[in-house]
Each structure stands twice: as structure tokens, then as C-alpha cells.
Design a protein around this nucleic acid. Structure first.
Length: 251
DNA sequence: ATGTCGTGGACGCCACGA
């Protein structure tokens, strides 16, 4: 989102047009008290929120129910304080997680150590979740491009975060739990989900696929379509990310 | 690619995070 408050006109239009059952958002930059619950309710959506105002912040919006909300997860590390990076809820029988992995900043940064520890702890929490859940979707900004084709120019990322072997291994470890990294169709251009605001990166096609939908076997077998709504990155006051949409066949 | 955003705190700008 890069601030849900700043993005509400775009989010409102998008929810009205696309009408997803569930929308996972990250980087809301909103405290729970400031969340635009009334405006979302008018659109038919309830929200489970986990934010503290200035940085981070995650939420799940749903028009098909929102039960068993959990904020954060057991064993989640902080830096050093806990940050608002994960929320889970059950929506129409599907266990949904909205997550926002730490950025990492640079290969030498203690923030990268934190990012890797956070992803390891996420794996442990999801392993437990999978043992008691049938129908799990882990959605969000993982801040990792899992494969070479997930960045516009692998050479440009030499020495950068988001593509390092350790970060990619952390994603592989998540997939090793039995989760599928759903590969979305690109409606136009390459299948990227994020483009930096600077330097005309979007218009030059210089993006990354760092926003992932990891589905367990029960849900992966029901995928009917998956795409990136690249057009949502255009126009006035866009987020720097585009929505990833997954459509499931009825159970 | 380092060219833009958004935030809060203290002011019409800066520091920070991405």
C-alpha cells in the first residue's frame, strides 16, 4: 500500500471493480484505531487489522467472513521490538495470512539478519499451521524475488538484497512445507508486482515479482486463474506494487 | 535505477523507510 490512507481512493475503486472475496494488504502505515473501517463496510468489507501507525502494518479485508483472527505469530522476531508484519484469519473456511517480510536493506545490514530470522520463524509457524489446517493461503510482500526471471535484469541485482542465495533459500524452505508459489499471468508486460517509484522504472519495465501467493495443496489444486493487475500501478497516486489476484474453483 | 513516495515532527523542511 505504502499507506492505505493515501491509497483509499484507489483501493475503493479497485474493490468496487474487482470485488475479491478477500484482499490482503501490507504496509498500511495505519494504527488499528485509524483504519477506515466505515468506508470499507460501505463497500461490503470487514477488516482485521494489525498496525501501529508509521511503518509496516498488515490487514485482511473480507466480504465472506473473518474468523479466528491472530496477530503476529509464535516465535516472531523483532528488531528488537516486534513489528506489525503478520495477521491471519479464516475467511469462508480458508485460512488466510497477510504478511510483510522485512526489507533487508543491504547484504551487510543487521536488517538482513533480521529478515532471514523472520522468514525462518515464519516457516516454523506455518509448519504448525499446516498441521492443523486444510486450505491455507499465505499472501503478501515477501521482499524476495524467488527466481532469476522474477527481476527485470539479474545482472543489475548483483550484490543486492531480494535475490541473494540466503533469501531465495528461505523461500524454498517455505515451499518445502508443501506450499505452491502460484505463477500469475502477466496481463501486459513481464509478470512483475513491484516497480520502484524512482527513475521511471515502471514505464521502463524494470520491476520485480516479490508479492507472492503461497497456497497449500488443497488450494493449489483449485486455482482457476492468477494474474497481476498491472494497470493498478498506473494513474494518479498509485502504490508502488500491483495487486496479485488468484481465483479458486469452488471446493 | 538511486530520478519518488508517504509519514511524523516540527514547520514549509527534514529524517527516515522503502
Amino acid at each position: 500500500m505504502n499507506s492505505l490512507a493515501a491509497r483509499m481512493p484507489r483501493v475503493s475503486e479497485w474493490l468496487t471493480r474487482v470485488r475479491p472475496d478477500v484482499l490482503c494488504v501490507q504496509e498500511t502505515k495505519l494504527s488499528d484505531a485509524a483504519f477506515p473501517l466505515a468506508e470499507l463496510e460501505q463497500l461490503g468489507y470487514a477488516a482485521a487489522t494489525h498496525g501501529d501507525g508509521r511503518y509496516n502494518g498488515v490487514a485482511i479485508l473480507s466480504r465472506v467472513g473473518l474468523e479466528r483472527v491472530d496477530r503476529g505469530f509464535a516465535g516472531e522476531p523483532g528488531f528488537p521490538e516486534l513489528e506489525r508484519r503478520a495477521i491471519a484469519a479464516t475467511c469462508a473456511g480458508v485460512r488466510v495470512w497477510s504478511i510483510y517480510a522485512p526489507n533487508g536493506r543491504s547484504l551487510e545490514s543487521p536488517h538482513l539478519v533480521y529478515k532471514l530470522a523472520w522468514l525462518r520463524a515464519l516457516r516454523a509457524a506455518l509448519e504448525h499451521e499446516l498441521a492443523i489446517t486444510d486450505g491455507l493461503a499465505v499472501c503478501g510482500d515477501f521482499n524476495v524475488a524467488p527466481n532469476e526471471e522474477d527481476v527485470w535484469d539479474p545482472a543489475a541485482f548483483a550484490g543486492s538484497t531480494h535475490v541473494s542465495p540466503a533469501e531465495r533459500e528461505a523461500i524454498s524452505e517455505l515451499l518445502g512445507l508443501g506450499l505452491t508459489d502460484v505463477q500469475p499471468r502477466a496481463l501486459k508486460g513481464a509478470p512483475f508486482t513491484y516497480w520502484d517509484y524512482r527513475a521511471g522504472m515502471f514505464h521502463r519495465g524494470c520491476g520485480m515479482r516479490i508479492d507472492l501467493m503461497l497456497l497449500d495443496r488443497a488450494l493449489a489444486s483449485r486455482v482457476q486463474d492468477a494474474y497481476i493487475d498491472r494497470d493498478a500501478r498506473k494513474g494518479a497516486k498509485p502504490s508502488d506494487h500491483a495487486p496479485v489476484v488468484v481465483e479458486l474453483k469452488p471446493a
